[in-house]
């Protein structure tokens, strides 16, 4: 049984500094960490390793610094890791990144599950899981809180549904997108940390995946970042319910909201 966990390296949101007055966000001082929800995904994969002896492969895309996060995932218990990295891949947008990851997963051969974090804490897009499923033409279950059982070519999982939970059965191979906070991810063992740089990590380029510059051309253009407008302080009114209702209605009318 093989489980693939795509992870993303992000700047630790706790270390990001925002200065709305200067319209400036300082990212560089924040530590590079594994996206928190991807750690939840890795945890689910490692539970399957503990229970069913699954082989866990971690895969990521980005610059050479992403190697550190893959090695951290290895220290947590993953069996192997692959980095997709070169100048072409560095320019890829969500579509390009998902395409490259899908190609890499195909290159790896047979697999049973792709367990991904439902969303990255930096971009909050939640595109990767569904895009991977589409590219590989396999089912995808989003917002997964728990994997109940994996057997007989199927997985039974609990997913969020509206404000309820839904039990779902899905045929394998499939993509499961793990919800933020679905579990408490394990910490790496110290001895594995100390050994985590002692194995050779395969680094695949766009050409290794059969991808050209054209394939990876971004479809989204980033034109700049800006802060949301400052919020106007709310108004507190007091009085009888009738007076308050009257005041509220006139307030909304003045602003043409009703």
């Amino acid at each position: 049984m093989r489980v693939i966990v795509p992870i993303k390296q992000i700047r630790d949101p706790r270390g990001v500094k925002a200065d709305p007055r200067r319209q400036q966000v300082t990212l560089e001082e924040a530590e590079l960490v594994i996206n928190p929800t991807d750690r939840n995904a890795l945890e689910e994969a490692l539970v399957l390793k503990d229970k069913l002896g699954a082989k866990v492969t971690v895969i990521s895309i980005g610059g050479p610094e992403v190697e550190d996060s893959i090695r951290e995932a290895w220290a947590c218990g993953a069996d192997e890791g692959i980095l997709l990295s070169d100048e072409l891949l560095a320019k890829a947008d969500f579509r390009g990144a998902a395409l490259a990851l899908a190609k890499a997963i195909q290159k790896l051969g047979d697999f049973d599950l792709i367990i991904a974090g439902a969303m990255a804490a930096d971009t909050c897009q939640g595109q990767l899981g569904p895009r991977l499923a589409a590219a590989l033409d396999i089912p995808c279950v989003n917002d997964v809180y728990r994997i109940l059982e994996v057997s007989g070519g199927k997985a039974r999982v609990i997913r969020g549904w509206d404000e309820k939970f839904l039990e779902v059965e899905v045929e394998l191979p499939a993509v499961l997108c793990i919800a933020p906070g679905a579990n408490v991810p394990r910490l790496p063992h110290g001895a594995r940390i100390m050994n985590s740089y002692q194995w050779e990590m395969p680094v695949w380029k766009a050409s290794d995946l059969g991808l050209s510059e054209e394939d990876l051309r971004p479809g989204v253009e980033e034109r700049g970042l800006s802060f949301p407008p400052e919020r106007v302080r709310g108004r507190v009114s007091r009085g009888s319910p009738e007076d308050l209702a009257r005041e509220l209605v006139s307030f909304l009318r003045e602003r043409h909201l009703i």
Partner: peptide
């Protein structure tokens, strides 16, 4: 790198 990872842990 190992010690940085150890500190995070």
């Amino acid at each position: 790198k190992e010690h940085q990872m150890l500190r995070r842990m």
